[in-house]
Design a protein around this nucleic acid. Sequence first.
DNA 1: CTGAAAGCGCTTACAG
DNA 2: CTGAAAGCGCTTACAG
Lengths: 357, 357
Amino acid sequence: MKETSGKSLAGVKEIAKRANVSIATVDRVIHNRTGVSAKTKEKIQQIIDELGYQPNVLAQRLALTTRGTIRLATLLPNISDETEFWRAPLDGIRRAELEIRQYGIHVEHYFFDQNNRQSFARQVARIKKYKPDGLLFTPVFPEESKQLIKDSATANIPCVLINSDLPGFDNSCYIGPDIFHSGYLSAQLVSYCVKGNKPVLIANIAREIDNNYAILDKEHGFRTYFSDHKLANPLISFNTTQTDYTAVKSKLSKLFKKHEDIAAIFVTNSRVSVVARCLEDLGKKKVLLLGHDFTSENVHSLERGLIDFLICEKPEEQGYRGITTLFQNLVFSKEIEKTYLMPIDIITRHNYRYYRN
Amino acid sequence: MKETSGKSLAGVKEIAKRANVSIATVDRVIHNRTGVSAKTKEKIQQIIDELGYQPNVLAQRLALTTRGTIRLATLLPNISDETEFWRAPLDGIRRAELEIRQYGIHVEHYFFDQNNRQSFARQVARIKKYKPDGLLFTPVFPEESKQLIKDSATANIPCVLINSDLPGFDNSCYIGPDIFHSGYLSAQLVSYCVKGNKPVLIANIAREIDNNYAILDKEHGFRTYFSDHKLANPLISFNTTQTDYTAVKSKLSKLFKKHEDIAAIFVTNSRVSVVARCLEDLGKKKVLLLGHDFTSENVHSLERGLIDFLICEKPEEQGYRGITTLFQNLVFSKEIEKTYLMPIDIITRHNYRYYRN
DNA sequence: CTGAAAGCGCTTACAG
DNA sequence: CTGAAAGCGCTTACAG
């Protein structure tokens, strides 16, 4: 007997014909709905298996068009010069929106001030009023975020976290990098490029550091590489909550006086272009500089040779995938993967042109 | 007046109603078909613009289901241990196939022996008999490939090239890396990691080298970086058409006797894991080793620390994108972009786990 | 130059 | 427990 060899052109109509039932009944079996006799169900299932039936996704979605709109909410930091990074995830979210609004998905955006816990809490309150069917956010403030996840679980609202995870908490879905290994990778690059045991600087430049899991874990990964490989380079932490150019420069300048031979600086977030400017002005162009994120300022410094490596984790795609994940779950009951780890990309001045966020 | 603010839920039906015509006429205007009076056309167009009408892609495709099948042909090297690289593009092609076969697209695969021009020509002849509606291939043999592109143009068959381009030839579409800059980037990595003016080896390991544009251009990019940056490292070309372990090892061994202090080896294709084994057996583990492609053997050597960097250009996505490009062109008359340059990814043992081809 | 109608493959009330 | 029919938004003969 000849194999149907993956042709599977057969649809519900064909199945119905073969089973001698109506397509409504076939539909019931396909979707495991109640109200079909065991016998009929079995017969239909057998034919489905035999035919290797694959639903036509197009038709499926089209038929669902009439269903009421599904409401999603996103909660991200607002975008300022200092937080330009957040433009990318938002772009991805918008791209997803355009693709799925045809299916009656509406996305409402909420923004908070990254340096202000209050503002986060305020937006959470607004979101709760909105009563979304799904939620995407980034857990900048651990306590508030944990509460939000719990409340979402209680309300039975699927929840996606992007960019950084909430460790020891698995009530939701995380889409973003393995932050520890991102730091670990940065250390590898430094160790490859720096010969000898010269000191290496780890620069944490953020208004909030102690609570910032993303920064702490990156530094931890970075340091772990050096200890794992028994490297003797002194690792100097440089923390500053004053993130403006002047403050960073004066602090750096002091550090350089103390440690003249600093060979490399790793900036644990996207503020690396500030350091680039400082190094240029301090005449320290030979210091290896690496940091995070494909912001326009960073790319500009990369282009000019002031930054050597940028580590990026496809923020645009994080946003895009976050929304489509919720969509698939809400519309097609597709199960949500617990974790989707993004690639950790290494960008230099010679491959950035081809990079896609 | 209130903005419709990108809602655009309106479809052909709504447009037809507002314009007082039938949906068939609206359809004609949307697709710029003939047989509509200038006046009607203008009126409809105005409403379309006003509403910011966006066609529902789902419905569009679904309605096209009945059209006869479209036949695509692919022509790629067959997959052996030595050419495992080609599995990835094929995987991508298969992934695309699964997605679009619902729209009546059929893909026929042809394979040739990378070391045998004859076999390429034979398959071209078979393809011509098949008379595909679209063609995807990789131009391993320049002369034959140019002829194939010309013939396709004559027959009005859209044509996509992947993995390497045919320079000075713009009758088709190229999806793949900027090879020159890929080599350039590799040189940057070497120059960052190698201190002093120690010699660097460029290893071309392939049955055919002189005609292999991908290899030649990569070496050219690599060398150009060193001259652009006035680096004094001696660059030694190491060409071998005997690609087996024993041959490579004995040749390498001789080279090392002549140049004991070789600091880095750049392998211009996926044969880098062979070199990795040689270095291990020759006790030359400290030499920086980089090369191309995410094959299982290469990844294994990367994991073990024998290879330092792998340069990859998303071969799976090249295949996938190649097929979907042809599909979009043939089904929706979407214009084909002349060139789509893939990212040039840098993979180390600490980020390969998160890489997606 | 224009329109009424059937159909793409699925889902969903509704009736029985 | 089961089926006939309408509808999702578009395209395509066909008739006029």
